[in-house]
């Protein structure tokens, strides 16, 4: 038990020391609790279009934005997301919708992307395209810029958390760690966190890290420091009692 506690302490300490949580991007706070645009999406060449609401009404959704011809962040982003999600075994429901924001992508391209990632059989992953990407981007505050010199979009990896009512509960820009991903899973399941900590670079002794998977706060070194005065004084008490024992015996004689 004690070993477990010390390990947790060390682990959470190392997370902080090595700057695990990347600094929060201010854009992530935009459009929170706005309704996502209910775009029609196409899942396969044979099926008819469905609305995005049909998807998220069923299950809370993580919406990842990519384009198939991307030579930059898109593939590592999806690989990492898949890897991290597999590691997180939590109580929260989710599905991942990978949507192309490139109008030139078609459903077939998206399907081959899913095959490349070995996700074509997964029930939790959906690959889709939409013809209303401008309206969808607008509702998310997402703005990829086409760079004709490189033939690429200048964009950041965007993951949007959407709950079953279609509200944007959280946004993450860039490839992020499992802690923030778990926070996102909690938020799309409407788990309420009364507070969260902003990342700090040179702050050693914080008290807690919130673990959204369990809904509990992991103790950090700071907590030990809060307990320290009580522990030290009790220790002192026992020590003094121990060293005064001989004299006490004399008194009673």
């Amino acid at each position: 038990m004690l070993r477990h506690f010390i390990c947790t302490l060390f682990f959470s300490w190392s997370l902080i020391v090595f700057g695990y949580g990347a600094p929060a991007n201010l854009d992530e706070e935009q459009n929170i609790y706005a309704q996502i645009y209910n775009a029609p999406i196409k899942l396969s060449p044979t099926q008819a279009q469905v609305s995005l609401a049909d998807i998220y009404n069923r299950k809370p959704m993580l919406l990842a934005f990519v384009f198939t011809r991307c030579t930059g962040v898109c593939s590592p982003f999806l690989l990492q997301l898949n890897e991290t999600l597999r590691q997180i075994s939590g109580k929260y429901l989710y599905q991942v919708v990978v949507l192309s924001f490139d109008p030139r992508d078609d459903v077939e391209a998206m399907q081959s992307l899913s095959t490349r990632l070995h996700l074509e059989k997964s029930t939790q992953w959906i690959f889709a395209t939409t013809d209303s990407i401008t309206a969808l981007n607008l509702s998310l505050g997402f703005d990829p810029i086409w760079d004709s010199s490189t033939n690429q979009f200048d964009h950041e990896a965007l993951l949007v958390g959407v709950n079953t009512q279609g509200y944007i509960t959280k946004k993450l820009l860039g490839i992020r760690g499992d802690l923030e991903l778990r926070q996102m899973l909690a938020s799309i399941n409407n788990a309420y966190i009364p507070s969260y900590r902003l990342p700090a670079d040179n702050d050693l002794f914080s008290c807690f890290t919130y673990d959204p998977t369990t809904g509990k706060n992991i103790p950090n070194l700071g907590l030990l420091i809060i307990a320290l005065p009580a522990l030290v004084s009790f220790l002192l008490l026992v020590c003094i009692a121990f060293f005064s024992r001989n004299k006490a015996a004399k008194w009673t004689e």
């Binding site: 040179n202 702050d203 002794f205 914080s206 008290c207 809060i226």
Partner: peptide
């Protein structure tokens, strides 16, 4: 080195 405001308040 900076301190954590919550920890300091507790202490």
């Amino acid at each position: 080195f900076v301190n954590d405001a919550l920890l300091m308040k507790n202490l």
